[in-house]
Design a protein around this nucleic acid. Structure first.
Lengths: 195, 195
DNA sequence: CCCCAGTCTGACCGATCGGTCAGGGTCTGA
DNA sequence: TCAGACCCTGACCGATCGGTCAGACTGGGG
């Protein structure tokens, strides 16, 4: 044991997560992060190639889950796609509230960065699934309102425990989604992860 | 007539509105705005005291309408408050899509500026009204999801005409809002502005 | 004619940004 | 004891930001 094992890398990551959620990505300087950790700005840039790499490492777990949700959605249509999309996204948003809060608002600019190249397309497909792959404006609008609103709610209600937030959002999503004629294989009263 | 009456002030305002909607308030520099207008940065700062004053003048009409909606909400309770809040906010968001898009994401930072001092409290009251002044987490969550989602949808669906977007959002809002036991004085099938 | 108010500009300012770099400490294994 | 990997830092860089300022240009009224 060498006295508390510094783990500066992890501390920087944690400090960045805190600051990004409060002041946003652009609104947080490397200097701010270094100050909270108690090291120099150069140290931050020793552990991370650049500011973008810091963000990318912070977002990686959430992005992995988003990608796997995208895989689950592949091939599903109609009401089944809507239900899986609603459950999957609510679960993701609640679990990764902090990451959602970071991306909030700076989505368009952040998506330009190579680390987040495919996020836009994935979230487009997610929105499309939530709309039951329908072309009706009402369905498309409802899907967008839900995705954006759920994200915002997760970022805002940090004081509400997961187990309370998740069912409330899921109930809301099911109520708000524009119903599509294709029936579900079985009633979605319990959680069903795989098809 | 003195050849086309420059109206630099208005041109700067219009250019700022365009750029703010695309790259955000912080993401747009005075240089960018000046370049689009075809004047110098110093000219921008001759017509507007500072960057914040430019934003304030841009937002003034939307804020006026928001304030009058806040007045309408005063004293209403239960389902009546929910209905007026839903109608009022959907109408406001659709009409002022551009302004909504500007504020999107930079809300927390922008609210610190003196010009937007009371916006936070007004939007809190609006959210509370949309929740029917209920304390139930479900109602509060639904209200936040709706407000955030509707804002985002208005900023995103710029290509959809007002007359199509407004009823779709209103239908969605009525479907998604957590019902409150207090009944409406009369069914809200037609628009009713005043009590 | 001059004067003045309105409009506009280039040059400049201090602050801050993300990022680089040479070098100093410290620990470890040969 | 020494080499080298690892960790960290102060000093510095160019770019860009919002904002200031002295002065140039213009048109109209006395």
């Amino acid at each position: 044991m060498v006295r508390a094992a510094p783990d500066t890398h992890g501390e920087i990551l944690a400090a960045a997560a805190r600051q990004f959620t409060v002041t946003g990505y652009r609104g947080t300087s490397l200097q701010d992060i270094a100050r909270e950790v108690g090291c120099s700005k150069a140290t931050v840039l020793y552990h991370f190639a650049n500011k973008e790499a810091l963000l990318a490492e912070l977002m990686a777990p959430a992005i992995d889950v988003l990608r796997s949700l995208d895989d689950q959605l592949n091939g599903l249509t109609g009401a089944a796609a809507q239900e899986v999309a609603a459950q999957g996204f609510v679960d993701l948003a609640v679990r990764f509230r902090r990451e959602i809060a970071v991306l909030r608002g700076e989505f368009p600019e952040l998506l330009c960065q190579p680390a987040f190249a495919h996020i836009q397309q994935i979230s487009d497909r997610l929105r499309d699934a939530l709309a039951g792959h329908s072309d009706r404006p009402g369905a498309r609008i409802a899907a967008l309102v839900l995705l954006a609103g759920i994200s915002e709610a997760c970022a805002e209600f940090v004081d509400i425990p997961d187990d309370e937030l998740r069912p409330a959002l899921l109930t809301l999503a099911r109520r708000a989604v524009e119903p599509v004629d294709a029936p579900l294989p079985h009633p979605p009263t319990t959680e069903d992860k795989d098809s």
